[in-house]
């Protein structure tokens, strides 16, 4: 399986191309709120950029917190999102301490699929899509937030 990795966060120029790619390719909308990858600033543009992506936890708290089964962990470790089941309660948002899950304008969870759409539109090679063993090896424990 694939996992999105923030390989070089210090190379980020804050262009937001990844966020626009995520929403454009996965939802067909032009939107920051529908992007599963988030670029934040720490102390404004003169500070450091922060790249927030889904950690792909081995035992994902978002799945445990979801009361409707909208977030489901498959046997291979992938978490899939069933939009029709999402009731917009925001429990998943609260338990993801790194802030990788949010709600969009329709009150539906925005969850990274580790598809790599953002990787293709990062001009500075901040992002990588890496191959990780199914069911999560030790690599999956490494932090991907910087």
């Amino acid at each position: 399986m694939h996992r999105l990795k923030v390989a070089h966060p210090e190379r980020c120029i804050g262009c937001l191309s990844c966020m626009f790619a995520c929403s454009r390719i996965n939802t067909g909308h032009v939107s920051l709120d529908r992007s599963a990858i988030k670029i934040k600033t720490q102390g404004g543009i003169e500070g450091d950029f922060v790249v927030v992506v889904c950690h792909a936890c081995r035992d994902p708290p978002c799945v445990k917190a979801c009361p409707t089964g909208a977030l489901e962990r498959r046997d291979d470790g992938n978490v899939v999102f069933h939009e029709d089941l999402c009731n917009g309660c925001g429990e998943c948002v609260d338990v993801c301490l790194i802030g990788a899950i949010s709600l969009d304008g329709d009150e539906k969870a925005v969850k990274c699929r580790h598809c790599g759409a953002c990787v293709a539109f990062c001009p500075h090679d901040v992002l990588e899509l890496e191959e990780v063993p199914a069911l999560g090896g030790s690599d999956a424990q490494k932090s991907s937030v910087h």
Binding site: I13, G14, C15, L16, S17, F20, I45, E46, F121, P123, H124
Partner: peptide, 15 residues
């Protein structure tokens, strides 16, 4: 550092 305007992949703002 070089930074960008929103939605510009160039990053021409030289700091």
């Amino acid at each position: 550092r070089k930074v960008s305007c929103a939605h510009c992949p160039i990053g021409c703002i030289h700091i």
